[in-house]
Design a protein around this nucleic acid. Structure first.
Lengths: 219, 219, 219, 219
DNA sequence: GATGAATGAGCGTTCATTCAT
DNA sequence: AATGAATGAACGCTCATTCAT
């Protein structure tokens, strides 16, 4: 492995463990076994190093998700594949969600995260809206669904340290990860069923108002 | 306002804005208009200051949620009230979710967050399990549901800066917050409907509804 | 002596010895016997420390020169007193001319030096112009004279290290300083005589052209 | 232009602009368009690079001054030619006086400057002493005169940035340079007249003019 | 002759914290 | 309760220089 790659690897790990601010170039140098100055030779600043790490992650995530969305017969299956692919990616790159988790709250890399997320968000949105008319607006609007899906998936990884304590088991063990996947797919199925039902009712709507729905919305 | 309170307020804001590590005692002193050394007089260390901020938040959140869960006729209504109360709390204390977001990934305050979350998690879990037998395990197990609910709610606040860009509108505006609430409640309704349906199907299998459970949940 | 003053003294010396860029805060701390961080507590940056040193010097020089120019019966005497006062000042503050020497060539403190020199320059100029009409323009214009006087005086101090080698004696010994003073006063006398002569000839000029002068100008 | 020459040129410029200490090999490499390591291939150290620049300057200055001093009928004319040549040289090599200005105050190149200046100083001294007996000692001693001439000439160039502000015009414009030259020559004329007058008065005292001296000065 | 990679030393600066008052 | 002064440790970063190719 080249020194450059060793630096990237060490930085990725340290950023994930303690966060960007608490990570020091000295420790990155120590872990990667290179001279401290070499970090600044390969990456202008510590910020640039983080940017590099993030760009690499998002590049690979993008590939993964685009592959997932490409395959699959039905839309539901494609969505499930995306969930699957996303979770496998976060499983294989555990620092990623932690880094994003911290940087998304503000700071110099917020803009970078925004720009990386935008196309992924748009793809998901278009897929939902074009398939399920009921997600164009309302309680199950595509935007809301995507935020919910994202929260279900990413939250599980970025809160793993807390969950370990709450659940008294390793949330990232293969068994538990599989359970989480089944849960998420189940919730997504519930939602898809609901939006499909709405579509049907909207089709009949010339005859009948979707009365039951309205009551539910009232709480 | 006492110097002590001014320090807490400034620290809370700064921790929310830039995170614990990037926050400096100098800036906290500047914002609260007190001498830097006074911070250490009132709060032993910077860590202790964060602990104080967190404890205060969790104390108030606990109260809020306990009040929410207390009122309400049906369990569904009590859940909805909790969602409502939680979101209102995060809305009124916007630094809170950001601080937790960052600290939950690790660091010295992870333990603190774990301990604060545990009772809230247990209360929610008992409520679900005692009311809906189907949440005892399986795809819609109480733990999974709580993580999902938490992700739906908290993620929305802690990713507000990113969402602002993705949605091209302020996600924390009253209008958008109300829409988010409706979405979350709707998803919860879908889930409750599902677990109730499962219970009925299970009931048919053993011929009887688990009525006693419902009484137990009321406590 | 307060820590602040000890720092200023050490900084002054070191800046004079090796120049601003080669001077390190570590060495300043070492020489003044204070903690390195204390330098930044009392003086924001290393630059600010230099500015402080310079301001103090120019403040004292200003006083000195204003006192010198105030006393004295004739203008010639007042000029001589200024030369005297200036040289005594540079003798007593040997780092001063070296620091100015280096900073005047450019860098962040050029502006500061410019602003300090301006009023001194204007005072000298006014004194000359109002006393000797011949210095209003021409070969012995006040500006040229002041630059020459400045070069005669300050150059002697800032090149002392070189002069020591060229003259094979300490140029700043009391004896040599006195000799330099006599030389400078003598040259100034020659110049004053010349401008007084020009004034007289200009008075007669209605009758006769200053022919000899013109030849001299031709070289 | 060879890489070596490009490096020398860039170093010369940078040393003149920011001084030796603030100049970095990185910037020299950038400006000359060569690899940083190549600088150390051609010039052992950064110090050696400065030495090269200085040696080149002094070599050319020596030539210039020797040419100037060679031509001319009278000694006065030869002196004037030297002033002319010196100022033209400083005008054509503006970094030179700035570099010398900074290095003459101390540091590793002081010795080099001393050695370069020594012969020039001795030549000037001999010329004066052999021509004008009055410069052998006293208020108008040759050493004093040379320091004064040097200060008048070099100070004008090395303080150009300050003078620009004091005079509110570019001191190095052809017009202003010409004016400075006329001033300097005029002052030198005053001095020569004075030393000649002293010689005459001394001659009267011993009845005879020191004629043989003049021949000796021609060499 | 030329270069990308690498390094030890050291830079100015900032940190949370302590202390004397 | 409050503060100005002080400190040891560590920060990100840059330096001139070296080395292998």
């Amino acid at each position: 492995m080249s020194a450059r790659e060793k630096i990237l690897k060490a930085a990725d790990e340290l950023f994930g463990e303690v966060g960007f601010d608490a990570a020091t170039t000295r420790e990155i140098a120590r872990r990667s076994g290179v001279n401290k100055a070499l970090i600044h030779y390969h990456f202008e600043t510590k910020e640039a190093l983080l940017s590099h790490v993030l760009d690499r992650y998002y590049g690979r995530l993008s590939e993964t998700l685009n592959e997932s969305i490409g395959a699959g017969d039905t839309v539901r299956e494609r969505i499930v594949r995306m969930v699957d692919g996303y979770m496998d990616f976060l499983d294989a790159n555990r620092n990623f969600s932690r880094i994003v988790q911290r940087e998304a709250s503000g700071g110099g890399n917020l803009e970078r995260i925004r720009r990386h997320m935008k196309p992924l968000f748009e793809i998901g949105k278009r897929l939902l809206v074009e398939t399920y008319p009921a997600t164009r607006s309302g309680e199950l609007a595509a935007e809301q669904l995507l935020i919910t899906f994202y929260g279900m998936i990413v939250g599980y990884f970025s809160y793993d340290a807390v969950l370990e304590y709450l659940l008294q088991t390793d949330p990232l063990s293969p068994k538990n990860l599989a359970a989480r996947k089944r849960h998420i797919v189940r919730v997504i199925d519930l939602v898809i069923t609901a939006v499909e039902l709405e579509a049907k009712q909207a089709g009949k709507a010339v005859k009948k108002k979707p009365k039951g729905r309205k009551n539910a919305a009232k709480r």
